[in-house]
Structures are given as C-alpha cells and as structure tokens.
Amino acid sequence: MSCGSEVCWRMFRLMVTALVVVMSGCGASEYEYLGWRTDAYNGGRGYGKPPQCVDIPDDLRLCHTVGYNQMLLPNLLEHETMAEVKQQASSWVPLVHKNCHPGTQVFLCSLFAPVCLDRPIYPCRWLCEAVRDSCTPIMEAFGFPWPEMLTCDKYPQDDVCIAMTQPNATEATRPTGSPICPPCDNEERTDTILENMCASEFAFKAKIKEVKRENLDRKVVFQKKKKLLKAGNLKKKDLKKLVLYLKNGADCPCQQLDNLGNQYLIMGRKVDKQYLLTGIHKWDKSGKEFKKAVKKLNTYKCPAFENVFK
C-alpha cells in the first residue's frame, strides 16, 4: 500500500497510540515509542524463515504478563525457536522479581518477546542504561556481570524506540528494590526457592557459626556439620572449610545472618577465587512451600545461566 509521507506518519502514530493503550494496562508504567528502526533484522545470523507473529505462551514467565499477547519470532536477540526463547528468558525471571528498576520487564521483553508490528522496534538506549545501572549491583551480588548481548550502545538514542517514561523522569531512574541484601531478600515460595537454586552452583544445609565484616563484604563461617544438597563443582573436602562472602553486604540488612541458632538452606557460587552467598532460606520443615521446593530440588530443570551471562 502506498501513501503520502504525512498520511503514512499519521497512520503509524494512530497504530502506535492504540498499541500504547493496550500495553499500558500491564501494571508497570505507560509505554512510549520514541522511534522506528529501519535496519531491523539486518546483521547477525541469517534466518531460515521470515519473522512471524506467534502467541506468547503462558510458560514464557518473563513476558506472559507484559501487557500484549503476541510476539515476533525470531526475536530481537536472534532466538529462532520458542524453546530457545523460553530457555534464555527464564534466566532473567529472578531479576525482575528483585524490582531493581521499574522498566526491567519492559526492557527485557522488548527484546525477548518484541511486540508484533510491521517492523521491530528496539528499546531506547537510555532505558537500557537505566536498567543496567540499577540492576547490575544486584546481579553482581550473585556473581553475574551485565551480559555482552545487552550492551546498551547498540540500541537507538535518537531514532524511534521503546521507553517507559521520559528519560529525565525520576520514577524511571530511581531504583525501587529493597534495601535488604539481595541474597537475603527471598520470598518463601516454591518457585522462588527453585530459581535461587538454579542461579547457584551448589547448595547445602547447615548452621552458621559466625559472621564477620571484611572490607565491603560479610564473611559467613559455618559449623562443621553440613549436608550437601547440590554439589556442582564443589567437592566434599572443600565443603569442610567452606566460607561464603556476602558481596558488598557489609551494611545491608540480612535477618537470616542475625540468628545463628537456625538451620538454613545455603546456596552459593564460585566467582574467581571467592565463594559467594547467593541465597539463604530458613530450613522450615513446617513450611508447605519450602517442603515442596526441597522435594523438587533434584528433578527441577534449570535454565543455562552460563549461556546468558557471558
């Protein structure tokens, strides 16, 4: 269909306005489209089939509540199959739950599950930078860097792009996360516990002997008796003298570390030569959600975090 530039632009604005109305009901903030990327799908690997609109499945947990029902596949991260999208997107669900920035889900889903239009629209560079700056400290607490595949410099700055609010709006740049140390800020829900387990290389049951401040971190020393639940690369001989560090956790609250009399489900990862505490849950035998999580520990299929956070 051909049309004059003025008519085409009006049609585009009407289409986008209608889309904004639909998407703004997702419970985050109002979406805005600030540009149009004309070189979409140029570069990167070649696709065996052209982009198509598909329904966002319920088990694509990162984006099934984002506010629209269909997405482009292949997506803007060059995932060609829905199985690949699900596997890669599931690694980001715990970060969205941490509420480190109000635009986290919008930013991620604009790439993992882009909304269906004639051409894909990329997230604004400032939105990427705001999410990155707010969420990187939480990611680093778990030993994950901001991945290269989400380098903000490659997203549009002046072209049309997906945003939440204007870049100078305080609600778009102010972190909304809890002041609690990220590994300690855990909901006692089965899926949350399992997600924490997946983000960790090893897990064990133990009591805490003592907690010491060491520079900007907290050093957690455990009693000798420990029950290994997920070994990862951790050997039993390493478990005996194992100490974990709460990264940048010298001053943030962690209620679990205040009570040294309880048994805890302890999770961790090795980053460089240091073992980091990535999750801690009170070993609550009476808790229905906790019992379900422990029962599923050995059979739960985790996403491959190492494929995402390179």
Score class of each variant (00 low, 15 high):
73 L>K: 06
8 C>L: 00
307 N>I: 01
196 N>R: 15
232 G>S: 07
68 Y>W: 14
168 N>M: 08
78 E>P: 01
145 P>A: 07
154 K>E: 13
241 K>Q: 07
307 N>E: 13
27 G>V: 08
46 G>E: 12
142 F>I: 00
118 D>Y: 03
17 T>C: 05
97 H>G: 06
53 C>R: 08
8 C>T: 00
33 Y>P: 03
181 C>H: 14
4 G>M: 03
33 Y>F: 15
154 K>H: 09
159 D>S: 14
34 L>D: 13
34 L>W: 15
104 T>W: 11
74 P>E: 08
285 K>L: 15
80 E>D: 15
88 Q>S: 14
59 D>E: 11
144 F>I: 01
249 G>C: 02
228 L>E: 05
100 C>G: 10
73 L>F: 03
116 C>G: 06
29 S>G: 12
196 N>K: 14
17 T>R: 10
107 F>N: 03
163 A>Q: 11
224 K>Y: 09
246 L>N: 00
20 V>L: 10
172 A>H: 02
41 Y>K: 08
93 V>E: 00
211 V>R: 02
156 P>A: 05
10 R>V: 04
234 L>F: 13
211 V>C: 00
151 T>A: 15
215 N>V: 09
60 L>G: 01
186 N>R: 11
215 N>Y: 04
131 V>L: 03
125 R>D: 13
185 D>C: 09
138 I>K: 07
63 C>E: 09
112 F>K: 01
72 L>C: 04
310 K>M: 07
183 P>H: 12
199 A>F: 06
217 D>E: 10
65 T>H: 07
295 K>V: 05
271 V>L: 02
157 Q>I: 10
238 D>W: 00
227 K>G: 00
304 A>T: 08
149 M>V: 14
293 A>S: 09
289 E>H: 06
72 L>S: 02
73 L>W: 01
173 T>C: 05
147 P>D: 07
290 F>D: 06
265 L>M: 07
196 N>P: 04
26 C>M: 06
99 N>F: 04
299 T>R: 12
47 Y>K: 03
120 P>I: 00
196 N>M: 08
